[in-house]
Write a protein that binds this DNA or RNA. Structure first.
Lengths: 182, 182
DNA sequence: TGTACATCAGTGAACGCGCGTTCACTGATGTAC
DNA sequence: TGTACATCAGTGAACGCGCGTTCACTGATGTAC
């Protein structure tokens, strides 16, 4: 049955919201269109009225997540990258990939996705790295420092999440080594 | 038709070898049992004579790859972690995930795999991190330094591979920022 | 050593299943008068 | 403003497909005599 324009846009926003969480929690191949739609309170058939394909949804989700992360980082102001790093290696970030950094949650999958998805990720990441550079502190090689810092954060979180359920101590040690070093 | 014991063990080794490459290239869900067996020169039905399940194969592949990487790192001797890092951020490692580090290629997938797979990965990673600590150099906080260094390498390679086809310059910049910093 | 036969590695058809996507249909929305 | 009707968002059955896994069968291996 038809639905008001307002409801329709609420539905679209709900799909994006739940997809954003589910993709990060389970990976692009670990979630089905039907699951996303069910979590959004709709049936699977309605999906293609909102998005051209599952792949198109992933592109949009990546773009939104990375834009939001860039804005959040920029809002922290000069030197904010250190604050960001502190939250990044926190216990809650380790435990909640569905609400955390898209790069850590989906970065390993992106290389295997279609060109459209890789392109969307790359555009978003550029924005994020620019924001990281701006908030890295005033030194001349801020860009290089920001890039290596982001690499470190992403790597530590990915590896910590991989070992977390088998060896929580090691997971926390990996995250702890970031703030300790440098 | 039956095959000599020698051939049988050659077949098993071939399955492990091609699975090791294909899993790293395409991820655990991106390769089918039939593809692995075809690449090994067999038909899919023979798979279950060698391994209990696809999951069991992944466990064994992870254990083998991480043990080999640990040995290679240890063979570099004291201070070898720096040599290892140099090869790690190389152009050829960026371009050949199928022959490269298992942590970078599969680390992002491990958290979503079964408990058995996560356990196999964790055991292997512990060995690798011990080897990294031994070769990190003589300072007192060698362990912490080794962990943060490995995180940095893994993160940089994962992100560089994600953006590589859309922005090769950025991929190389990410890898370059590792050797530059610190 | 030579032969008869039990073993068992590999084959390929078949299984149930879940996936992404399509589409005829339903009925509320919102527009034209 | 009230009514008749065209529009179109959502529904759910259906599609083709590829997946992991099973299994009856084949025929070479390797053992017992």
């Amino acid at each position: 049955m038809k639905v008001s324009k307002e409801r329709r846009s609420e539905h679209r926003a709900a799909i994006l919201r739940v997809a954003s969480r589910l993709f990060r929690e389970r990976g692009p191949e670990g979630v089905s269109v039907a699951e996303i739609m069910q979590a959004a309170g709709l049936t699977h058939g309605a999906f293609y009225g909102h998005f051209e394909s599952k792949e198109a949804l992933l592109c949009e989700v990546l773009a939104v997540m990375l834009a939001e992360a860039s804005d959040q980082l920029r809002d922290l102001g000069p030197g904010g990258l250190d604050d960001y790093a502190q939250g990044y290696v926190s216990r809650s970030h380790l435990d909640s990939p569905g609400e955390g950094c898209a790069v850590a949650a989906l970065g390993g999958d992106v290389a295997r996705q279609s060109a459209a998805v890789r392109s969307a990720f790359t555009s978003g990441l550029k924005m994020f790295l620019d924001a990281a550079t701006e908030t890295a502190g005033g030194c001349e090689d801020a860009r290089s420092l920001a890039l290596s810092r982001v690499s470190q954060l992403v790597g530590a979180l990915i590896v910590a999440r991989a070992v977390r359920s088998s060896d929580e101590t090691l997971a926390l040690e990996l995250l702890g080594s970031i703030t300790t070093a440098e």
